[in-house]
């Protein structure tokens, strides 16, 4: 028989991050995701759950993939969708974030999906708006739906989270994907190791309850999941590491390194992939890679999150 989920009642209008969620709440989102994943297998992939609601994708920091995923999720829930990117918004004319959001609320936007370069921007709006605010990435702080879909994919493939050794590789310091993953993996009982250059993976992270290593070859044989982060080499990072080829030499998941992995170890990546940099092209398409499953699961996770946060009455 179905497991009763009635001990858990979802009562958050916003999803701002995973740090403040309990393990039960995270489990509940994952279970709700099961239901919405099924919708993707129907002939008509649409349910009326958010019919009549308006969702605004407010992407101050641009992103096509995440935005498309949220848009599709909203459309499958029968919501109306509006996409706003910063270039088109009045933010460039000096309007404050708060005023822009209040204007959207005055247009009866029920759900605001926000991606912003400033950590804390979703918090800022959520406390001021009646609309639901969903964090699609705020600075280097959190990207909760990405971590949830990572979690869901791991659980789907390995049956559980607790006790697994999850290794996250790359630029952790500036990564919101890493932080959200760290929070929810630890809460659900996984063992987490961070790997990368010491300038991008400082020891300070150990205080969060994870292990830090700068030698990827030592860590890979013991990994159940390897989550590779995209490495960026923007202007700001030049002081942190000397370049892409050095990074690949020291930390890239090359064909050679992939041989160190256990046969059932999952290879994950939030995308977009830099083929040949953080991951070898063949490995990205190989049998252990679940990168495309992540994308499919991302849609289901976002439907679940929009349903839960957007479905609560705000009266």
């Amino acid at each position: 028989m179905d497991r009763e989920m009635t001990n858990m009642r979802w009562n958050r209008k916003d999803l701002l991050g995973l740090r403040e969620l309990s393990a039960d709440e995270i489990d509940f989102i994952l279970e709700t995701t099961d239901a919405f994943k099924e919708v993707g297998t129907r002939e008509i992939k649409k349910v009326p759950a958010l019919r009549g609601k308006t969702l605004v994708n407010f992407f101050v920091e641009p992103s096509t993939r995440t935005r498309t995923s949220f848009e599709l999720a909203a459309l499958r829930l029968s919501a109306d969708v509006i996409n706003i990117s910063v270039a088109a918004s009045s933010l460039t004319k000096g309007e404050t974030l708060k005023d822009t959001a209040k204007n959207l609320e005055a247009l009866h936007a029920d759900i605001l999906v926000l991606r912003h370069g400033s950590a804390g921007a979703p918090q800022f709006l959520a406390s001021r708006l009646k609309s639901s605010v969903i964090n699609a990435g705020d600075g280097a702080h959190e990207h909760p739906t990405q971590a949830l879909l990572d979690l869901y994919t791991i659980r789907e493939k390995r049956g559980k989270i607790a006790g697994l050794h999850v290794v996250i590789v790359g630029d952790i310091l500036f990564s919101r994907v890493a932080r959200s993953n760290i929070f929810c993996l630890l809460k659900l009982g996984a063992r987490v190791t961070l790997v990368g250059p010491s300038t991008l993976v400082p020891r300070e992270f150990e205080k969060l309850g994870v292990t830090v290593s700068h030698r990827i070859d030592d860590i890979l044989p013991d990994a159940d999941v390897v989550n590779l982060l995209r490495i960026q080499h923007e202007r700001q990072r030049k002081e942190y590491f000397p370049g892409i080829s050095e990074y690949t030499r020291l930390f890239g998941l090359t064909k050679e390194r992939a041989k160190l992995l256990k046969p059932d170890c999952l290879i994950m990546h939030p995308g977009p992939i830099n083929r040949g940099v953080e991951i070898d092209s063949e490995i990205a398409d190989g049998a252990q890679s679940v990168i495309l499953d992540q994308v499919t699961n991302g849609l289901a996770v976002r439907m679940a999150v929009l349903y839960l946060c957007g479905g609560i009455s705000t009266t």
Partner: peptide, 10 residues
């Protein structure tokens, strides 16, 4: 720069 900046990504 310390525990909280690391935790919050600031």
């Amino acid at each position: 720069e310390g525990y909280w900046s690391t935790l919050l990504g600031l």
